[in-house]
Amino acid sequence: MAPGLLWLTALMIVPCLLIFVLAFYERGIYGGIDWNAPTLGNFRRAADYLYVSIFLDSARIAAITTAIALLIGYPAAFAISRAPARWQTSLLFLAILPFWTNYLIRTYAWIVLLNPVGLINSALIGIGATIAPLPLLYNEFAVILGLVYSYTPFVVLAIYSSLQRLDPSYAEASRDLGASALTTFLRITLPLTAAGVAAGAVFVFVLSIGNFVTPDLLGGGKLQMIGNLIYDQFLTARDWPFGATLSGLLIALMMLALAFQAMAARHAGGGHA
């Protein structure tokens, strides 16, 4: 345990404290730090309706993405865990292989598929399913699609690792006792894999809310997410103090949400150690 905690302390906590301390200072005129005047002004700025609404909107998009990724990923992981044992590792590899190519060219490929004169619209018009091209690109739909695409394999990996050890005899016993397939799934399988579902959900949610490239490319820059906002504060506005403030608040809120979820889980009897 020690090497891991040490690594995170030395290479995350200490360096990040160097940045978070900036939240209490102002941006210098040319983009440096004005060390002369400690201030809480950045927190007042962050409370502006604009930034709150960007945060809420990002959380909404991340939540929708998470739900869809779970709906796709869970049954897929379940199916892999039910495949012949010798195929399982290969099936996992196949799920993740597409993501060993570069993000940018995968996204360009989606643009080719989704754009108004793209492959999907041409096909739909070709078979007469629609007359005018559907607006599939440069909107929220495209951003969510892109995020779901990117992070579904992570859900599969997380859920598979908790499903894999699941003893099929539990489910068989349940079925033998007359429970329906649905009841068996809800009462036996799902609770036993809750840890995997939770891990997968956390991956998708945190990676989505922090993503800043997908909204730019598939959203056509028309959606501002918290990831973009923070990125822009650090690099475009060169306002590190405000960027540090927004990041600190984001982390604090996510930690609160996680602590709440962990507490709820323990109360629900899923507690451990």
């Binding site: 995170l8 995350m12 906590i13 360096p15 990040c16 940045i19 956390v202 991956f203 945190v206 990676l207 922090g210 990831g227 923070i230 990125y231 650090f234 690099l235 960027g243 540090a244 990041s247 984001l250 982390i251 996510m254 930690m255 996680l258």
Partner: peptide, 11 residues
Amino acid sequence: FAPMIIPDIVL
């Protein structure tokens, strides 16, 4: 949990 949520640009 922190390394997952710290925005990449901050790290």
